[in-house]
Design a binder for these strands. Sequence first.
DNA 1: GAGGCGATTGGCT
DNA 2: GCCAATCGCCTCG
Length: 187
Amino acid sequence: MAGFFERPVVDVARDLLGTLLLVDGVGGTIVETEAYAREDPAAHSFNGPTARNQAMFGPSGRAYVYRSYGLHWCVNMVCLPGSAVLIRALDPSQGLDTMRARRGTDDGRLLCRGPGRLCQALGITGALDGADLDAPPFELRPGTRPGGIVAGPRIGITKGVNTEWRFCVAASGALSRPARHTLGKGC
DNA sequence: GAGGCGATTGGCT
DNA sequence: GCCAATCGCCTCG
């Protein structure tokens, strides 16, 4: 995976779809991502380095984990300095029993649907902020790029709402929210 | 040192 | 569909 993250964050976000993401052998295939760039009012890095976002300015290929709304964890993959890809949903495939136990539900569709849910299912917390994605407990296994990739506006933000930097596999039943806009030819 | 707010989720109407 | 939960971080005084 060397060099994979040292590219424009939008390209990385799209190319991560179809990649298998595991933490201690538990996880699934990435089906939804969002890109956050350095000069991006919606990004945590917009106002420069702070205590929370320092991982975004560190080496590429690391995790940036932050707490959302005081109760949920969300995981990003750091690209070039100040840019990162938010992982919003997985199609769960490995360690289903572990994920069901952590999530406290038997509903397989809700295990990894949404950034907070997938972190709970995979056991991702602030302890993994800054961790190398190419070393245990993380494992990234590139797959073939799935068909039917769709781009649309990012979710849950108040700035940068017109930038269509959310990417998802339209046909997936594991999306946090339905896909809306279609991407042009070549994707 | 205090106040406001957020890249969300789950439960209730 | 609406709204509360919940707290670390950031900004301002």
